[in-house]
Design a protein around this nucleic acid. Structure first.
Lengths: 87, 87
DNA sequence: ATAGTATTTAGACATTTGTCTAAATATCTA
DNA sequence: TAGATATTTAGACAAATGTCTAAATACTAT
């Protein structure tokens, strides 16, 4: 859970997740949406991957990234626990 | 939202929230639950307060902290948006 | 007033983080 | 095999973060 919150603590990474929510994208396509160098985006993707929030599948010379929903369910559970304020 | 994720990106602060979920506590009571100095806990509480995740109400020489549920709803909404993977 | 308790503020310091450029790796194509 | 494209790795560096101790502020009570 620590890695998940760490990954979410960055505006760029949160935007990447929201973009991948709509469609899978290659690392390059993702990078083109930001004014940040490709190595920096690669680093962000590595952090998201380590948190298991995204997966990257190699296809030829491209790597196609997509969102993992299972960890998001864990996060949802955590938030719901917090919301459920015990009397 | 940025401040919320920043606040949640720390194990101590997350534990504080989970404790306050069960019952309101004074700054001192909270500090006694950790092996961290009181000024450090005070700093954590300030970050949680700035994110609007908790409120502190002064009562005599004590300050009683409690969880704010409204921001947690916003967070929940954000996570649900992410979970709702568009086609 | 003085002393004691609760909490925060201030300042210092080591670690972590996000960014960059340059170089390495891997794949495609002519 | 070369050259071009896609992506990552390595290394550097400034800024942000979490922690501490010492001091300040605020309230209580004798």
């Amino acid at each position: 859970m620590n890695d998940v919150f760490k990954a979410l603590n960055d505006e760029t990474r949160r935007e990447i997740l929201l973009m991948l929510r709509k469609k899978d994208m290659t690392a390059g396509e993702i990078a083109d949406c930001f004014h940040i160098s490709k190595p920096s985006i690669s680093h962000h993707l590595e952090i998201l991957r380590r948190a298991d929030l995204v997966s990257g599948e190699k296809q030829g010379q491209y790597i196609i990234y997509s969102v993992n929903t299972t960890i998001i369910d864990d996060l949802l559970q955590w938030v719901l626990t917090l919301k459920n304020k015990k009397k």
